[in-house]
Design a protein around this nucleic acid. Structure first.
Length: 494
RNA sequence: GUCUCCAUCGUCUAGUGGUUAGGACAUCGGGUUUUCAUCCCGACAACGGGGGUUCAAUUCCCCCUGGAGAUGCCA
């Protein structure tokens, strides 16, 4: 039987790193085994449902170029693939369990359950959870409650003794005593919607899922799912619980660790290739040496055996490193297309860039390519070419071990040399500036640094002479003159 | 509290009953470079503790410790 796996997110928020990692592992596992990757929407919680979340799911998967073989939009033989469209099925099977005496209606109010929980916490009772009050209702009591028209939920009867064991593909055998399983969990809510457990088990069965790959946080409820499968008399899919993705403090990765939404990474200028490559390496490795993988390679090389058991910390720095690598792999033209939206957003160029603007941008691509960690960095990096420098401190113009007067001399004597930049090569200008530094008995930096700061307002910038060419001779001269003025004022005032 | 799972450099990881315990990121140093970055070279840095089993344990077993997750009419 061919492999069938699913990614089954619930549309209650933006797609995040942890979710997408699960999606990726399922996807790669399916592809590596010539199987099918199914997308299923687990929208059984009406109160937390967000329309935006669904859009985000689709756009995120599209961005990563993860296509699903069956699911919403594309359809498939086991649809519908949205749980909210399968309610009748869940109700039918929940009722079936009730009829067979494997589940029961519970009429307990939220007030009673809250009070129960509060008491249990206060008294630190051994067993936490539902007290199975309605499990032992007599027939006449039930008829009475029905007559009153009381709301009810359906609870699944967990055996009162014995234990449940399953073999996890990664973890090996895992056993849980039935008395430790949440006592008689709700499988059908009072609004007629199923809980995760019921819907999940029914769908996995009818969608003929062969392998359930999900995060380790599901281990504790796996025995319940097993019991549910057994109650229906269904075959149990193979289980594989993936290590979780943690933040730097070892806790489950969440917003307080930084961005976790894929959308945020995308906005910052992370490339899909980089994110996909890095995320695939959290909890999985190939041989411990190689770490660059394309999606296509992963679709062949991915294997369950190399998944690690221990949770992994998400390393933002390493992601950046991957991103820089993939940025440098782009051609200049490709990178330009990626960078344009950021330059437009910063108002450096117009929404419909003119040819002149495009030509200018085209020239600066090689200057920034090796410097970008994320695409958005380009804004700060080339801002000096598109807008005036807001603030310039005399102190930042003056290199270490030099005074303001010396710096003024450097700038003034550089001016005539730089004025000729349009009729000279970089090498010729460079040579003359080096000669100047010798004449003034300065280090090379003593000349280049003041010029750089005068031009860009920053100690760090793309190559100086190329920057001057891009900025244009007039602005270059004007900025150097402005710097001189600032320094003269500094001398007069201080 | 109870239950379950996990444990190699700061981080992601490779690895084996006998290895100088390997790689990558980060960090630090050096080289290239007019700065930064890239690139190259180098350094630092790990088998949580205690018992066994064994001629030999990082590796197998047990305990402890530590960490995480679950304990919802959320998924």
């Amino acid at each position: 039987m061919s492999v069938r796996v699913r990614y089954a997110p619930s549309p209650t928020g933006l797609q995040h790193i942890g979710g997408i990692r699960t999606a990726l592992f399922n996807y790669f596992f399916a592809k590596a085994n010539n199987g099918s990757f199914i997308l299923r929407i687990e929208d059984t919680d009406q109160s937390r449902y967000q329309e935006e979340a669904l859009d985000d799911l689709y756009s995120t998967l599209k961005w990563l170029k993860i296509e699903w073989d069956e699911g919403p939009v594309v359809g498939g033989p086991f649809g519908p693939y949205k749980q909210s469209q399968r309610i009748a099925l869940y109700q039918e099977y929940a009722n079936k369990l009730v009829q067979e005496g494997k589940a029961y209606r519970c009429y307990c109010t939220n007030e009673r359950l809250d009070a129960l929980r509060e008491q249990q916490t206060k008294e630190k009772t051994k067993i936490q959870g539902y007290d199975r009050h309605c499990r032992s209702l007599t027939d006449s009591q039930r008829t009475e409650l029905e007559k009153e028209g009381k709301e009810y939920v359906i609870r699944f009867k967990i055996p009162l003794s014995g234990k449940t064991t399953f073999t996890d593909l990664l973890m090996g055998p895992i056993t849980r005593s039935n008395t430790d399983i949440s006592p008689d969990p709700i499988i059908l809510k009072s609004d007629g919607f199923p809980t995760y457990h019921l819907a999940n088990v029914i769908d996995d069965h009818f969608m003929e899922i062969t392998h359930i790959m999900r995060a380790q946080e599901w281990i504790p409820s796996a025995p319940l799912h097993l019991l549910l499968h057994e109650a229906f008399g269904w075959k149990i899919p193979k289980l594989c619980h993936l290590p979780m993705v943690m933040g730097s403090d070892g806790q489950k990765l969440s917003k307080r660790h930084g961005s976790t939404a894929v959308r945020d990474f995308r906005n910052e200028g992370y490339l899909a290739e980089a994110l996909l490559n890095y995320v695939s390496l959290v909890g999985w490795s190939y041989d411990g040496e190689r770490e660059f993988f394309t999606k296509e390679e992963l679709k062949v090389l991915f294997s369950l055996e190399k998944i690690s058991k221990a949770p992994g910390v998400f390393d933002y720095k390493k992601l950046q490193w991957f991103n820089g690598h993939y940025i440098r792999l782009k051609s200049d033209e490709q990178l330009m297309q990626l960078l344009l939206p950021y330059l437009i957003e910063a108002n450096y160029i117009s929404k419909e860039p003119t040819n002149e603007q495009l030509n200018k941008v085209r020239l600066l691509i090689p200057l920034v390519k090796e410097r970008l960690k994320v695409l958005r960095d380009v804004v700060a990096m080339v801002g000096f070419l598109f807008e005036e420098i807001k603030e310039m401190q005399a102190s930042s113009l003056i290199p270490k071990k030099m005074g303001p007067k010396e710096t003024i001399e450097v700038l003034e004597r550089s001016l005539p040399i730089i004025s000729e930049i349009e009729s000279c090569t970089n090498e010729e200008i460079e040579e003359r500036l080096l000669k100047l530094s010798e004449e003034l008995k300065l280090k090379t930096n003593g000349v280049f640094m003041p010029l750089r700061v005068a031009l860009t307002g920053s100690l760090v910038s793309p190559p100086l002479l190329d920057s001057m060419r891009l900025l244009g001779i007039e602005k270059t001269i004007a900025r150097i003159k402005r710097a001189i003025t600032i320094l003269i004022n500094e001398v007069n005032n201080g």
